[in-house]
Design a protein around this nucleic acid. Structure first.
Lengths: 356, 356
DNA sequence: CTGAAAGCGCTTACAG
DNA sequence: CTGAAAGCGCTTACAG
């Protein structure tokens, strides 16, 4: 009875050599005579042999695979992240074992543990990593791991994240340079770490400018809350001359509120967001924002991990537990183009409450 | 010297049983005494044991993993596809081994072959499958595979695809029902199979309506070509009273052309697209379109594949090589809302060239 | 219900 | 340069 699947033994037999030689020839080891190597390759090709991944992994103790554990898969963020990870992985000849596990920590913990013996390293984005012990208990022992946009309770793994703080500061400086001084900030959910960092950056940059006047409005990272904040901002006296929304969706909601009220952007009020979602360049006026290259984030994380994997995980000491940040990039579009309103108009608006 | 990693032997020793019993206990086999089962579970938990994936795969001849081979990872299509696949996979306790390989057939062939011994089945989207022999030569022998939006040279695998033909027909019928009779179609690239099918659907539905008058404009699935087609349509005499673009991006380009010319949508001309991209609901007026649930496509493909995997691939006969189509769904928005222009206006426009 | 043993398909020192 | 053999960490008939 013919075997359902061809193994290294079949190739060995066809080429008239031992399986050891087949293994060496196919893996490109140098210690194989040229004619033998050729016979083996021909036999392998003829039989359409390809090595059994699990068997190879088991004996070589290497899977050529990286595990990617994410909390979710919805939306552009994850798609870009995976794309960036995949680009680097393919360039280095690695496969990706993907596990996205919505829901509870137990589910993600199980996904993490299930990676043992399947991958050489782990890329993890986890909202549960700030629970004490979560990573320590669920990360398979000998596997190097790199964290993405994840806050760990105790520093265990190298981590990469977007530098929201620096990004927000850069955006505020951009608005200040245009001459805006009365800048409103629309915040995100308080529980959201990105949102908190962007708020901190806003405050820091505003504090550094003596004659700037900051105001803050609550938001929830969605269009509706941006719309509400926009209405509140229009009602404020003195009215802000620029708005910085903590993300693009809120900036769009805000933009619609302004458009509905007949307030010109950027003529009467400048507007900026954060993220550079695809919509940002399509709205009118197009939206100034901070571009966060999520693909680059994923790619960099993969490169960091592969360095660890290739170094051999033995020597992962405390000094390896670094933390890299990725600076977002300012994208100036029409919503903040040109300069701030001319002095006299600005003066008029400021009149009710002059400041040093 | 302590082992770097804990194996089934460590658990066996800790629980005072054989490795066979540990295996049976941990895998939930019924033939284990209750107290023994408990001891084993406790020992496993205490030692933080989790089984070695490759070892388990090798001996059980099952990986609990599905390979997903795609040509690319850019854009919403692939992100939605993966999301749909992942949802079903996770629900069935399967992992996903992802391989996206841009570029040439040889690269994708290698990716396909590399799946041997790593997965229990394959989900494949391949632009190269229409080359004779490509699938036969590169699909690892005993693995069941399901094709997604892929046209194979010879029917080898079950396949799922979007029913572009039916979708286009449904859209035309919608426009006809609103009273439109003079409908322009903006086509996609001739090499694109989706585009060809949508064109066929348009023609079929128009042919079925005796008093309908069709016109066709070339396009390239991008905004610019939609814009050009829009201008051409506005210049046509008699002017069409509805436009059906083969995808949303072209519909948007067309919409901008109309807006620029001051032509009201849908008041003076109705407009519809295909795909339901996120932008479709944000433009003004919002765009009527055909929604293609890519996530559902991925999910259905995964379900089909798992059925094959679980049936055991032995009996994959010719009757298994079926082909399922997924019907897109009509999404009526503002760009085709209300009714066609009233008779007298329609009459005026038709005047130069009256028809039966 | 439990254990000893064979085997899954490879890789890799170890001899020669 | 090549082969025989051990071993990777599991699962699973086969006995008992």
């Amino acid at each position: 009875m013919a075997r359902a699947t061809v193994t290294i033994h079949d190739v060995a037999q066809a080429a008239g050599v031992s399986v050891a030689t087949v293994s060496r020839a196919l893996n490109g080891h140098s210690n194989v005579a040229e004619p033998v190597r050729q016979r083996v390759h021909e036999a392998a090709q003829r039989l359409r042999y390809s090595p059994h991944g699990a068997a190879r992994s088991l004996s070589s103790r290497s899977t050529q695979t990286i595990g990617v554990v994410l909390p979710d898969l919805h939306g552009e963020f994850f798609s870009e992240l995976i794309r960036g990870i995949d680009t680097v992985a393919r360039g280095r000849g690695r496969h990706l074992l993907l596990s996205s596990c919505h829901g509870d920590p137990e589910q993600q913990g199980a996904a993490l543990r299930a990676m043992r013996g399947r991958v050489d390293g782990l890329l993890v984005m986890s909202p549960y990593a700030d629970r004490p012990g979560f990573l320590a208990e669920n990360l398979p022992q000998p596997l190097p791991a790199v964290l993405i946009n994840t806050h760990q309770a105790e520093p265990l793994c190298p981590a990469l994240e977007v530098d929201n703080h620096a990004g927000a500061m850069a955006m505020v400086r951009h608005l200040l340079e245009l001459g805006h001084r009365r800048i409103a900030f629309i915040g995100g959910p308080e529980a959201n770490h990105d949102a908190r960092e962007r708020l901190r950056g806003f405050r820091a940059a505003m504090a550094a400018q003596a004659d700037a006047h900051a105001s803050e409005y609550p938001g929830a990272f969605d269009e509706a809350s941006g719309h509400r904040a926009g209405q509140a901002i229009l009602a404020a006296r003195p009215r802000p001359d620029a708005v910085f929304a903590a993300n693009d969706m809120m900036a769009l909601g805000c933009l619609y509120a302004f458009a509905h009220a007949g307030v010109q952007v950027p003529g009467q009020i400048a507007l900026a967001g954060f993220d550079d979602i695809p919509l940002a360049r399509f709205v009118h006026p197009s939206l100034t924002t901070m571009r966060v290259s999520i693909a680059a984030l994923g790619g960099r994380a993969m490169e960091r991990l592969l360095a660890l994997v290739e170094a051999g995980n033995a020597e992962v000491g405390q000094e390896q537990v670094d933390r890299q940040v990725l600076a977002p990039e300012l994208v100036v579009r029409a919503s903040s183009a040109g300069h701030a309103p001319p002095p006299e108009r600005t003066g008029r608006r400021r009149a009710p409450k002059p400041e040093g």
